[in-house]
Design a protein around this nucleic acid. Structure first.
Lengths: 182, 182
DNA sequence: TTAAAATTTCAGTAATTTCTGAAAATTGGA
DNA sequence: TCCAATTTTCAGAAATTACTGAAATTTTAA
């Protein structure tokens, strides 16, 4: 199977960036390959395309499944499992952000909540405790906002993002209408 | 120097999470320590607090500086350098997001742009190329939106995030006012 | 129920990343 | 300028993470 050079570069880049995104090289490459493949691929095909062992593909698929990034497909008359990703890039992005939140943010929020609950009276004006409270509140705000945004459909979200800081003007407007409800 | 248990847990947690945030353990711990220390610390103090070698502290500081996360402070009559982070958690979060964008997103945007520019006529209806174009457009939208948000001050941003998907209603309103300018 | 096909697991190895101590380089006061 | 204090660099060691092949397990068609 011939791999066009642009596809090769694309997969190569994912391999190099993978570690910055919380994946290892082969997991990122498997993901990249499935994203730009029109047809679903089976494990042997992935193994061959990327020149990695069959068992490594197996582990990579398991990892990507734990990120909810794969669709498994059965082809009638073929016992092999075929894999692909969502063909909606926005859906992929949402999933990625949501899973990264679970892994990178939620544990820290819990930790902070726990430490803040344990606090005793002698710590009321403790600088460190105040810092933790600020951090907790900021992260909680981020998380609830992201969750809220997840509820919008792709079209709406796209519109909102295109508006960008133009939203600022809208806030001014609502302020005036409401008569500074702050 | 006695370290209260809540501070110890906090630093410990950062150490464990560090690798998910693109840092190594000690870099994350140095950052955590400086965030919850009221007074700036010098390299020897950091080394002692975290039980890591002086040279490791040096490398960690260099790394954090490359992330624009540190302030260096001179204390008159003391030749040592003292370090601290911004005391504004929002500023820290902005910096972190901006630097992660530079490292995790910008290179991919460039790569995609490059591949798409090279495309020739035979690839017009290439599935992979279309996928790359979609991905490019999505990332570009994200990046320009983030950049736009960075221009808002913390207070405004906080307000906007609290509004959350309530913004949706505002969009409906502006739609009506503008007479569907889509 | 059987057995071939397909997948997963896992122990050992390979590769990568992180950390240290020693040495080199830099800094700043006298 | 000198020199002691401080910081940085870097080669090698330690620790961690990723990968492979062989064996075990699971699946499914007959």
């Amino acid at each position: 199977m011939q791999i066009p050079s642009h596809i090769h570069s694309f997969i190569q880049h994912f391999g190099e960036m993978g570690s910055r995104w919380g994946f290892n090289r082969t997991v990122s490459q498997i993901c990249a390959l499935l994203v730009i493949s029109e047809e679903p691929l089976n494990a042997d095909q992935i193994s061959e395309h990327l020149s990695i062992s069959r068992s490594n593909v197996s582990m990579g698929i398991k990892e990507l499944q734990s990120w909810n990034l794969l669709r498994m497909i059965s082809i009638p008359g073929d016992r092999k499992d075929y894999f692909t990703t969502s063909d909606d890039i926005w859906e992929l992005a949402r999933t990625l952000i949501e899973e990264r939140r679970k892994r990178e943010v939620d544990p820290t929020l819990s930790m902070l909540r726990g430490l803040l609950l344990q606090r005793d009276d002698t710590q009321e004006n403790d600088y460190a405790i105040n810092r933790m409270q600020e951090m907790h509140d900021l992260i909680e705000l981020f998380v609830s906002w992201f969750t809220d945004m997840q509820s919008l459909n792709s079209k709406r979200l796209k519109k909102l993002m295109k508006l960008g800081s133009g939203v600022n003007k809208v806030l001014d407007m609502t302020d005036k209408l409401a008569g500074k409800t702050s």
